[in-house]
Design a protein around this nucleic acid. Structure first.
Lengths: 343, 343
DNA sequence: CTGAAAGCGCTTACAG
DNA sequence: CTGAAAGCGCTTACAG
């Protein structure tokens, strides 16, 4: 038999509202009745129906999260931050996995709306017009993570991708490298693809580094593609004379290091490699990967904190546009000082 | 202004039940009125309140999941399977992260009950009596993953840990190794600790391998502890003469491989290493890790499928006790044939 | 084919 | 300090 407030009320010989009061504002009820009610609550092991409560008080206390796909390596850390901030504020998380399918992200918004999410944390490698239309249509506050909106009219928690990529390149230059290869993500990926690429290119220009297309290859952020991109770059190594490679993701960087290994060269003695992300695995590979760290957990944490602030009426406190959290270069073992004469 | 069925009904000049019908059993309503209603639904962009519906039909369509901690590396894959099975059956997932705190897992059960979870997927490194009491108290169907209940009165989806560990050892023996080190998890961890340890020891007995305590070290499944455990084992390598090591988790195995590297030995030429889990990173390290694969995603998938079967009245179809899914040794690069004479 | 009524499990003014 | 009443947004027999 299901036990509800009605059950408790009957057993305790009081009314339903009284049961509700002992649970929600016990100071309003006489100590004796309070004890009486608490006693049957305990013996019947009663748990109030949070769903019913939420319906009545017109709030769901849940935040929807749309992500590209669960198996992304950054998901753990991002979600950890999201979960933490939500829990601290008594919110639940409802996750929607878009499985890299734009159709599904559209469904995600509808779904979360139906499930009464009060706001949405949205992560995507780009923001299409369709998404914008959908966001307007559901009419829920949306906060971006690891993403940026083209019109900057949504708050976005992320890293300054371009600057971070530029810094990775500078790190190499500061260690004497001038002939540097680049493994970029796909440029259709507005953020991690295009912006990082721009950062690398800005640095090449700024430091007046030699660069031609034989030093450049593209991948899809995954290990395999990093491996293949490195093979391409190595096939021109004799003419380009590269001593280092900037890679747009740790996973690709680890693949690239493997390619170097399979070609009987060494990282970092022959070729230095710097990654991007600072996934926890970067500290487990050999050589340990030098990389630029994104504070994934912090990004998740601050994004939902901001969302909750908005939900609780502090909309003016969280500005639209980019909230750039600080990135950081983590020096490990995959970059050496350049010992070749470059003249 | 919030738009509900009431809004739609008014606009369309029908009653609320009619709106409900066009959404849930459109064949029951006359095509003309159906069209009329659908039209205002579309223009007002109405989404029915799933929470209210669930309250009315007395189901929540949500499954609770309690895990030790989000940052576990297997979480991604396990959750992927959980999420997939839930989505396919129209169930939502509500996640509860116990943060390795027994107190919090207790809270988890209460919380999920209040949130009206219809059943619970529970992952834990051991099952205490307190947990049992709590499980009985909430009265929800519970299914274990990567875990086993001491009294086998709960369905448990997992791998035959002992057999899998035994097989890892056999794999080494088949390649000529006889002096084999063991890095175990903590024995308090009933499953991944004790059971795997038992499997290793059974194999040592079965194959009559030489073994003394200098070949054994313990860790906590993490990289760092694997590194240190390997250091301990290596410090006795001259006397023990080990040529291979069985490690109870991939993360520890990767740490162990690093220790070998730092001691200027090579994997697998000097020391072979076999892990346990087949985390996706095992394929990215160099040398790629040979290991015994647990089908995490499948475990998650089958566990929630079984739970849903139970919820839908097929309780007799899912038996209590262990459901052992098949493990598999994945041969990669970290194990070589033993070339030393053992006599 | 459609509407009025009742009710899911709660909460919250309003009386008393 | 406590209870009767109304209502959150739905669904579902029951009439008509």
């Amino acid at each position: 038999m299901k036990v509800t407030m009605r059950t408790i009320a009957k057993q305790a010989g009081v009314s339903v509202p009284t049961v509700s009061r002992v649970l929600n504002s016990p100071e309003q009820v006489k100590p004796e009745t309070r004890e009486k009610v608490m006693h049957v609550i305990r013996t019947l092991n009663f748990r109030p129906n949070a769903i019913a409560r939420n319906l009545r008080v017109q709030q769901s206390r849940t935040i929807g999260v749309i992500i590209p796909q669960i198996r992304d390596y950054f998901f753990n850390e991002l979600y950890q931050g999201i979960y933490k901030a939500a829990t601290e504020n008594g919110f639940n998380i409802l996750l929607f996995d878009a499985q890299l399918d734009p159709e599904r992200v559209m469904e995600g918004f509808s779904f979360l709306k139906e499930q009464q999410a009060e706001g949405i944390i949205f992560t995507s490698s780009y923001i299409s017009n369709d998404y914008y239309t959908m966001i307007a249509r559901v009419g829920l506050p949306v906060i971006l993570t690891l993403t940026e909106s083209p019109w900057h009219d949504l708050p976005a928690f992320k890293v300054d991708e371009q600057k971070a990529a530029f810094d990775a390149m500078s790190y190499l230059v500061a260690r004497g490298h001038r002939k540097i290869g680049v493994i970029s993500g796909p440029l259709e990926s507005t953020i991690a693809g295009q912006h990082r690429y721009d950062g690398y290119m800005m640095a090449i220009k700024h430091y007046q580094l030699p660069f031609d297309t034989n030093q450049l290859a593209f991948g899809d952020f995954r290990y395999e593609s990093g491996y293949r991109a490195m093979e391409t770059i190595l096939s021109h190594a004799k003419t380009t004379g590269i001593t280092a490679v900037c890679v747009a993701s740790d996973e690709m960087a680890i693949g690239a290091m493997r390619a170097v290994y399979d070609y009987h060269l060494r990282v970092p003695e022959d070729i230095s490699v710097i990654g991007f992300d600072n996934l926890s695995i970067s500290d487990m590979v050999t050589p340990k990967l030098t990389t630029v760290a994104q504070p994934f957990e912090q990004i998740g944490y601050e994004a939902v904190t901001a969302l909750i602030t908005k939900l609780e009426g502090g909309g003016n406190k969280v500005s639209n546009g980019a909230h750039n959290l600080s990135h950081q270069i983590i020096s490990r073992e995959s970059v050496a000082n350049c010992t070749y004469d470059d003249s």
